Computed example of a mutant assay.
Amino acid sequence: MHIFKISPIIRITLSCLYIALTVPLPFLADFTNAPIPSNVLWIGIFIGAIAVYAALSERVILDDEQIKVAYPQWVPRFFRKGWSLTWQEIDNLKMRTTGQGGLVYYFTTSSAEKAYLLPMRIAGFNKMVNLVAEKTGINTADVRPLAQPWMYLILFVCTMFLWLIDGWTIWTATHFTRPLA
């Protein structure tokens, strides 16, 4: 059995981005006397952080029988369901373009009822694709991940700059008692 988790660089980058986008909000709410109290925003940020962590806890499990996308048991099924396909059910791996011009791949089955997205943001993507090729006989030579690691590194660097701006924003909001006119 092989278990693949979302790449650490993706998990760290998206978690840091979430923090950068949300943490200044309660401070700004206090500073501007917003109608929503900052403690309500803190509760929302905490719930959102749990949701982000849940979404980033996806794992892909390959064994002799099937490929399965699963989440830990604490993640409610209505939030993230997951799926599984036996190797015999898989007919093909179809390429589709995204709205931004990227390429994604879907497993298709003989029943053709549904297509199942090939997980592309996992650590060990090439190993997983090679195992899929071995189990299904499908040629996966042209299958590449949607986003390259350098893209997430650039996003991480931009997020760190955003953290600097957040620090200045929080400092400003906590050191002035009323909004500037």
Rank of each mutant, 00 (worst) to 15 (best):
R59V: 07
L146P: 05
E113Y: 09
I36T: 14
D64L: 09
W87H: 10
V157N: 02
M128A: 03
T159I: 07
C16N: 02
L85S: 11
L117N: 09
I122F: 03
F107A: 10
I45C: 00
P179T: 11
F125Q: 06
A51W: 00
M1K: 11
N130L: 09
A20G: 05
P179V: 11
E65N: 15
L85R: 10
V75I: 04
P76R: 04
V75D: 00
S7R: 04
A70S: 15
Y18Q: 01
R96C: 10
T22C: 00
A112K: 14
I90C: 10
F156W: 05
I90K: 07
R77N: 13
L41C: 01
M120E: 09
Y18W: 05
L14S: 03
N92R: 13
L25A: 09
V104N: 12
A34T: 06
T108P: 03
I45A: 01
T97D: 15
S38W: 01
I9Q: 01
P24H: 01
M120D: 13
A133R: 09
F176H: 15
W168S: 07
I10T: 05
I170E: 02
Y18F: 11
A123E: 10
T32E: 10
E65S: 14
G99Y: 13
T97S: 15
R144C: 08
T172Y: 14
F156V: 04
D142E: 15
G137L: 05
F4H: 02
L162A: 12
I10G: 02
P26W: 01
F125C: 08
D30R: 15
G124W: 01
V23M: 03
I47T: 05
I45Q: 00
I10S: 02
L17Q: 02
D142H: 14
P35H: 08
T140M: 15
R11S: 02
E89K: 12
M95I: 13
A55H: 01
G102T: 14
W150Q: 10
K114I: 06
V23G: 00
R80A: 13
I36F: 09
F46A: 08
K114M: 12
N39M: 02
A54E: 00
S110A: 13
L153C: 07
F161L: 14
V132H: 05
K81H: 12
D30K: 15
M120C: 06
A112F: 06
L28N: 04
A133W: 06
Q100A: 15
D64I: 04
W83C: 12
T32K: 11
A55G: 06
I45S: 00
L162N: 07
L41I: 00
Q100Y: 13
W42F: 03
D63V: 11
I9F: 02
W150S: 12
P37W: 03
I3W: 05
F79L: 14
R11L: 03
R144N: 14
A70W: 07
I3T: 15
F125A: 07
G44E: 00
T159G: 06
E113A: 11
K135C: 05
R121Q: 08
G48V: 01
I6M: 05
P145L: 09
Y152C: 04
G44S: 04
T32S: 13
F176A: 11
V157H: 04
T169E: 06
T159H: 07
C158Q: 06
Q66P: 08
Y152Q: 03
Y106T: 04
